[in-house]
Structures are given as C-alpha cells and as structure tokens.
C-alpha cells in the first residue's frame, strides 16, 4: 500500500506540530550562527500552511505539497522560505496527481526536493546547510526503495537526515548568513539541517 493525500496532510500537520514544539530550539541554534529567526519563521510558515490547507483542502498529495510550497515561500520570510518552498514544489511536481505514491516515486520526490534546494541555494554537501541533511536522506531513500515499502523509505530518509544534521556540527559554514562567521561557525549545528530532519521525521509519523 502506498501513500495518499491523507498521509500528506498528516505529514504537514505533524511538521507544523514539530516546528511549534521545536521553535525555541531552532531559534537557539540559529542565534550564534544566523539571525535567530529560523524557529519563528518555520513555525509561522507551517501555521500558515495549516490555514491554507483548511481553506482549500487538496485532493492529492501533490496538490497538498504545492500549496505548502507557495505558502512557505510567501510566509517564511528568510532564506528558508524559498528553499523549503522550492523543495516542496519540486516534490509536488515529481508526485504529479498520483493518488497512491509508491516507494520509487517517493524516493524520486525526495530527490527532486533536494535537487531543488541545491539549485536554489547553490550549496553543496559539506557547506553546513540543509543539504547536509537532505543528501544523505535522498541516498538512503533510494537505497531503501528497492523493498517497495514506503514506510522503510520514509524511515531511512528520516534517520539519515538526523545523522546528517548532527554531521554539520564540525563543519565550516560556506553558505548563508553563517558563512560570514568563518571559523566561528564550527561547533554549531545548522538549524536548517535540523528543521529538515524534523520534517522528514514527521513524514514517518504520518505513515504510522
């Protein structure tokens, strides 16, 4: 059995919950290496997503993700807006109007999301950005897709993203506001990588 629009709606709702719950943590992570608004921006963005989804309930997972993309791009404000917006937009395009998302399509959607983030932000692996959560997640999802079990794909992606977020601790930031800090960015975890891992973890919960 694949994933349907209800999974997507649960995913977005759990993501909104996670952003609200981890708001302070993301703000604290962003304080030393950014402008300490990531938690607030993501919380506001996903709250706005919930309002939009309630106003015009989408009929497919792809439509839900597209509405999310447009809302995040308009409401988040910081760099996370266009980056997550592009990720959700490209994932939505990859899903198309599929009613029942299988493992291979899901892995392809994650890859499209990551490629969108890279295209928009021009960051590479090791730059201490959300790409460092997404790329391991995409690789793990692709490897897990062979079993044709969407839950395994989701779980593999979430675990790899969480490990990827931790891996940003010793990195020297080369993109975004944190890159202005140079060496002083070392020793801090990238907030965008952490929020990415939270969102991918929410996708697992939505399929349970």
């Amino acid at each position: 059995m694949g994933l349907d629009v209800n999974w997507a709606l649960r995913w977005l709702a759990l993501s909104a919950d996670a952003m609200a719950e981890h708001r302070e943590e993301l703000i604290e992570l962003d304080r030393p290496i950014g402008d300490s608004d990531h938690g607030e921006n993501m919380d506001r963005g996903f709250k706005a997503v919930m309002v939009k989804l309630a106003e015009a309930p989408p009929e497919t997972a792809g439509a839900a993700l597209k509405l999310t993309a447009m809302t995040l791009m308009s409401k988040v404000g910081g760099a996370a807006g266009p980056l997550y917006g592009t990720a959700f937009l490209r994932a939505a395009t990859a899903l198309g109007d599929t009613a029942d998302v299988d493992a291979a399509t899901l892995a392809a959607a994650f890859q499209a999301a990551r490629d969108g983030i890279v295209a928009r932000g021009k960051a590479e692996s090791g730059d201490k950005t959300m790409v460092d959560a997404w790329t391991p997640a995409v690789d793990a999802a692709a490897a897990a897709a062979g079993d044709s079990d969407v839950r395994k794909v989701l779980l593999a992606a979430a675990e790899a993203a969480e490990a990827g977020a931790v891996s940003t601790d010793p990195m020297l930031a080369r993109k975004g506001r944190a890159s202005y800090l140079g060496e002083r960015s070392i020793g801090h975890r990238d907030p965008g990588a952490v929020s990415s891992a939270l969102i991918l973890r929410a996708a697992v919960g939505a399929a349970e």
Partner: peptide
C-alpha cells in the same frame, strides 16, 4: 518585505 510587513521577502508580493 513580507505579506505582513516584516523584514523578509514574499513570493506573493
């Protein structure tokens, strides 16, 4: 600015 007049950029705008 953002839709609600804060610092940021808005796709809608």
């Amino acid at each position: 600015g953002t839709d609600d007049g804060r610092i940021g950029t808005s796709l809608e705008r």
